[in-house]
């Protein structure tokens, strides 16, 4: 099948890739950009492990084709930390034990990073609804909720 040459902009860096139109953005990030922080669980939009941010909106990268992401600002978990300084969400996930096996963690981090950017004052009730977007089979979600609320408070205080 014909491949298409294109340039993806991920975490501010340009990646020249050559992919078939049927290749999902998630697979392209992992296989062609070498950014394996984005995980794939179900590959049909249910589990949320592949959640990333495209043009400021959280999306399932298994439900977008890479050819649809050309010219868009893509952000993955690799772009969260600044050098050695973790993103407040990453620190809070560590402090509050919001992960065990860690498989779902990149998806939760990008989901909540995107949501907190749009809604820094999000309340607990709305956050519970947001967290229902992604599956975690280890934590029972309580510690993820605590971590995100703590990170949100840290981020507001830092402003």
């Amino acid at each position: 099948m014909t491949r298409q040459n294109m340039t993806l902009e991920v975490n501010g860096r340009r990646y020249d890739v050559s992919v078939e139109p049927r290749k999902t953005l998630a697979d392209t990030l992992r296989d062609d950009c070498g950014l394996t922080g984005t995980h794939l669980g179900c590959e049909h939009g249910v589990c949320g492990a592949c959640t990333i941010i495209v043009d400021g909106e959280t999306v399932r990268s298994c439900l977008m084709f890479a050819v649809q992401a050309e010219g868009r600002a893509i952000r993955t978990v690799e772009g969260l930390a600044r050098g050695n300084e973790l993103h407040p969400l990453q620190s809070a996930f560590m402090q509050h034990h919001a992960l065990q096996c860690g498989y779902c963690t990149p998806g939760f981090l990008m989901l909540t990073a995107g949501v907190l950017e749009q809604n820094p004052d999000i309340g607990e009730e709305e956050l519970v609804d947001i967290l229902s977007s992604n599956l975690c089979r280890c934590t029972g979600y309580e510690n993820i909720l605590k971590a995100v609320l703590a990170a949100a408070a840290d981020m507001r205080a830092a402003k």
Partner: peptide
């Protein structure tokens, strides 16, 4: 709208 799927689905 709040009953439709999840947030990252609603953005697309």
């Amino acid at each position: 709208m709040r009953n439709i799927a999840h947030h990252p689905i609603r953005t697309r």
